[in-house]
Amino acid sequence: MVDTKIYENNQVPAWCSGCGNFSILRCMKQALAELDISPDRLLMVSGIGQAAKAPHYFKCNLFNGLHGRDISVAVGAKIANHDLIVIAESGDGNTYGEGGNHLIHNIRRNVNIKVFVHNNQIYGLTKGQASPTSDLGMKTRVQVDGVLSPPFNPIAVAIALNASFVARSFSGDPEHLVAMMKSAITHKGFALLDILQPCVTFNRVNTFGWYKERVYKLDDSYDPTNRILAFEKALEWGDRIPIGIIYVNNRPTYEEQLTQLKDGPLFKVPITGIDYSDILKEFK
């Protein structure tokens, strides 16, 4: 294991004090250190939102792109260089709202990237509107009658799409979160990690205490390869919220299925000195 100090940089987080993001950031460094991943082998991709700023605050390669489009950038980069460890990190608005279509289709595509979602059930950066995961009835400046649409269930959706790896953790349980991050990173295939996290400024309902009372860890007797059981766990939300690896389905990755990527990363394939006389014949 390397020292977490190798990830330190001089950037100063723009988050509120007490924000769950700080814990997630510390856990990220811890998980990377325990896996001996040096910063130059890691490509973080993020979208927009308070969570999406996280990769600025530790050493890594980084493409901080548009709101909701980070998964697409991550997939493109992984196809170009599958030697990179590629993690997309953003929030619930970014990944479950704006980027919903990309989440759906990249779960299907199963490129070996990791998607870490800071899920605080609220929009922070734009100051307190409902997010796709906000509970029914939550009142905000915009949702004046309370949230009318039932929340998006990322875990159930991912299982329905036969995702390769689906897990949930909680920023208030660093030990668990580090373990989940490590499992996601070492899993071969697309991995979705939903991280429950309080927003101390805008979400007065789903507070640290609210989560703390409800989350419970799945124990060793739970079989994450059983899709029916996984659905049951995915639907559990209320007085008790399960955290842990909820579903695993070891299916071939996108990269494994392409002969074009068999001889090494695509960006290293020579593009000069190639004989194109075969193609010229097509036009005669």
Partner: peptide
């Protein structure tokens, strides 16, 4: 197959351009 090109049909054009930017950023 002959020239080692990856062609990926995206879920929408937004994804297509963003995938391309990711691939280009990584050197292809």
């Amino acid at each position: 197959k002959r020239y080692n090109i990856v062609v990926e049909q995206a879920e929408d054009e937004i994804s297509a351009i963003n995938m391309v930017l990711g691939a280009s950023f990584a050197g292809v």
